[in-house]
Design a protein around this nucleic acid. Structure first.
Lengths: 249, 249
DNA sequence: TATAAAGTCTGACGATGCGTCAGGGTCAAC
DNA sequence: GTTGACCCTGACGCATCGTCAGACTTTATA
């Protein structure tokens, strides 16, 4: 069943102009177009649109959304699950804001006292929902560096991503005999997490740790990583928060 | 205690550039500026910034926020209370989205079936959080007309607001012998609500009805409105949803 | 106290995500 | 075959900052 723009617009709440725009930028081109150039949206197009709207709600940029959707191993159900987590997170941020607001009201009435910091709880407007967590865990510099690296990449014409990854891995591999908990290591791990997130993966802290598990449990990963040096996979896992005492020796 | 930009930025999570911007457009100019031109934000500035961020979170445009804040009878506590309501509303929208998402996951797995409409529940991206309610109650045309009128106003140089209000009142007054529930009257009431909302007041449906109460309970209002015709205040109250049987005769 | 490092300023240009015409074609119904 | 509702493609505009660049000020360090 095919629908024209107006119908889609009414059904979904986005404007016709928005649909045009998404078509133009290649984010969502209707499956069919009549000879006269009329857009005809299929059921699948609607699914895609729904995906787009979810990601948009989460603060992703349209360009990123496009990349995510056309990624060959994009798994819709997995994405939905991730979005669910992110929305829940967003809701708790809202809850914090509401709490802040209620406190502020009492503060304004002179009933309680608030520090300035408390007055802005819940107001972090980072694009990536997990970025703030990352900041708290690893400090701002690492995240900023990583963000900047990405910005430069986008700006100056797509310096190979794998190159960046490898560089980061080599850097980490060089530290593989240090304490996995050391500041230096943790900084780089932070960069790694931020890097993954900015690639559109959006790992929550737990998911990120889960990734660490994978590095040592799935031997395809292990083998690949150990190319960077013996025991590198284990080192990474440890650095990513997998407890050493849970690793079999 | 005065703070410089960086400190404020870190405290509140907004960028320095944003602070510059808000200064430039006159939305938030720091109370003090050093001889060298360094911005110095006072405690009150921070309060204002907090207000701004709340309104921003609610989707207000900076221009509107400016108007609201500099309105002489802007009551901070009242505003905070209104914001609280709006945030709660926003949260329930989020809840609806989460619900939609969870259903979609099941739908994708083939466990349940969803209509297309259901797949987009919670995705209305109107700027004014109450606009959708207004649309449901009074239909799109009235709201659109009102929005357009405002747009024109802004565009073509500030046709006097009071003029618009009066015109609308006169139009309503002309109908004051009709049934307050008639379509025609309700349309105009819809315009009135939308008009108030777009002025930055953001009346929820209940608050709007409360306003109706005011028209007949506070004699300053009553007197003023009855200038448009005898019994106009009562007519308005009724049209705004105050039940006739609660009016003393 | 001199110098470096960190912070700040003011332009100015750019990006994002559409809104909003204008001008013109298409479709369905009567 | 005319009307009215829809649709199309430009093209411009706008809000809200991001992102330099170039220059100045303040703070920390040696």
């Amino acid at each position: 069943m095919l629908r024209k723009v107006k119908e889609v617009a009414e059904l979904t709440g986005v404007s016709i102009r928005t649909l045009h725009h998404y078509d133009r930028i290649g984010l969502l081109s209707p499956e069919h177009v009549t000879e006269a150039g009329y857009r005809q949206y299929s059921e699948r197009d609607l699914e895609t649109l729904q995906q787009i709207l979810f990601f948009r709600e989460l603060g992703f940029q349209l360009k990123q959304i496009g990349q995510i959707l056309q990624n060959p191993d994009f798994d819709r159900i997995e994405a939905l699950a991730l979005q669910r987590e992110a929305l829940l997170e967003k809701r708790s941020r809202l809850d914090r804001m509401i709490q802040t607001l209620e406190n502020t009201i009492q503060d304004a009435k002179g009933e309680i006292e608030m520090t300035d910091k408390e007055k802005f709880q819940g107001f972090d407007f980072t694009n990536n929902p997990y970025e703030e967590e990352a900041r708290q865990r690893w400090g701002n510099e690492a995240v900023d560096r990583s963000n900047k690296a990405l910005a430069d990449m986008g700006a100056q014409g797509q310096k190979q991503i794998s190159e960046q990854m490898e560089a980061l891995f080599r850097k980490l591999a060089a530290m593989r005999h240090q304490d996995a908990g050391s500041d230096e290591v943790q900084q780089s791990i932070g960069e790694w997490h931020a890097f993954l997130n900015s690639m559109g993966h959006s790992y929550s802290p737990e998911a990120f740790r889960g990734l660490g598990q994978l590095y040592i449990q799935d031997e395809r990963f292990t083998r690949n990583m150990d190319k960077f040096g013996d025991g590198f996979a284990r080192f990474m896992a440890e650095a990513m928060g997998i407890r050493a005492d849970r690793l079999q020796d």
